[in-house]
Nucleic acid binder design. Sequence first.
DNA 1: TTAAAATATGAGTAATCACTCACTTTTTTA
DNA 2: TAAAAAAGTGAGTGATTACTCATATTTTAA
Lengths: 220, 220
Amino acid sequence: MEMSTHNILDQMLSEAKLSKKDTAKQQRILHAAIALFAEKGFANTSTSEIAKNSGVAEGTIFRHYGTKENLLIAVIVPFLKQSLPMMAKEVFEEINPSKHARFEDFIRALFLNRMRFFRENKDIFRVVVKEFVYREELRTELLTHVNKEIVGYLNQALDYSKGKGELPDRPNGYLLKLIFPYIFSQFVIRFVLSAKEPDVPDEVEADAIVKFVVNGIRSC
Amino acid sequence: MEMSTHNILDQMLSEAKLSKKDTAKQQRILHAAIALFAEKGFANTSTSEIAKNSGVAEGTIFRHYGTKENLLIAVIVPFLKQSLPMMAKEVFEEINPSKHARFEDFIRALFLNRMRFFRENKDIFRVVVKEFVYREELRTELLTHVNKEIVGYLNQALDYSKGKGELPDRPNGYLLKLIFPYIFSQFVIRFVLSAKEPDVPDEVEADAIVKFVVNGIRSC
DNA sequence: TTAAAATATGAGTAATCACTCACTTTTTTA
DNA sequence: TAAAAAAGTGAGTGATTACTCATATTTTAA
């Protein structure tokens, strides 16, 4: 019901590094947990159900993870450990001035990159979104990490585009608050709320959204 | 755990009409339930907790609502019964050609109107958003009702603006899919995800978002 | 090969869950 | 005012929950 530590994500992200390799049963547990959490949510999934779906004794779950809460963390952490640095890398590469990237290209690349990543990890993405709605501490801690690892790069990208006159001279925080929710809401709709994905290619979908963002932000 | 009827919202919206007046205790139950559901979510709230917080015997809850699930419905339905028609009315009034409203004015009015309404019903809004993330049937049924009651008005508004050259000649569904998630995500961020509201007046906030939407959609 | 360590098991446990029901109290009706 | 109806109560119920632990099996190490 309640998180006991005060800095879960920090702790998680560092601890997860020194974890030994998973056993076969551990992987099956994680698989079943992800599928069930994604579909019914953490609170509506019982450990006995996870045990049954993964063909493992219930005790095995607690041998490895101690608590149900820790199992959730074991699901979320590797996803965030991948997600944040990959996004930072992508941002960094796309703003490389040698590419002479327009702001539009930057947004498009970012959008398509995250689209692919979230699709490949659709179930975990669903788990993360659903749990983040409920847990404020997770949200604020994630925000802290995003600030630390990504916002610096984003600021560079925005400043670069400002210099080329593609963005209005507004604080970056202001611009991000307008742009980011829009892109993210599209992912939530597509991967969490919609029953099935549209059969339009990503590039077509991206085009409309990128144009909307680029033209929308230009005159704010 | 599971909804038993196949058409909950339809049934709810009609049934709720002929409900007699609430007793004092019923109102206290609803109040406590809304607060608890909003904070911890439906699944993480127990009926005994609701009873305690409302100063009522647990049996009283079940006397009135039968099941915990029905209590949730009793919370959500009046909100939707207010929300949808009010939105339809607002849309209808703002597109009245005698007002010579620009598309920008229409979006601004809509945004400010919903902002006020959701703020006044912040807790219920949080309950609805949190539960809609989990329940697909609720989402699809709400969508059906929105289509029935609102989309007609929205189409009129969009066609009207198209005629004035303020919108590109694209299918209305396409335009709505670009505009609506953006506005809604701003409400979710503000009322569900953020710890506290910004101290900027609504009109200032609206200005940035409306400009973003209007300019974004113009060249899609 | 064998001892030790790690992994796996499932019956068992206390707590909590949504919900029931026989009963009392309050309100409505006639 | 008396009878009927409605509202309110709280101890009790079976089911389910997350979690434990003594024991068994498998893997690793010497």
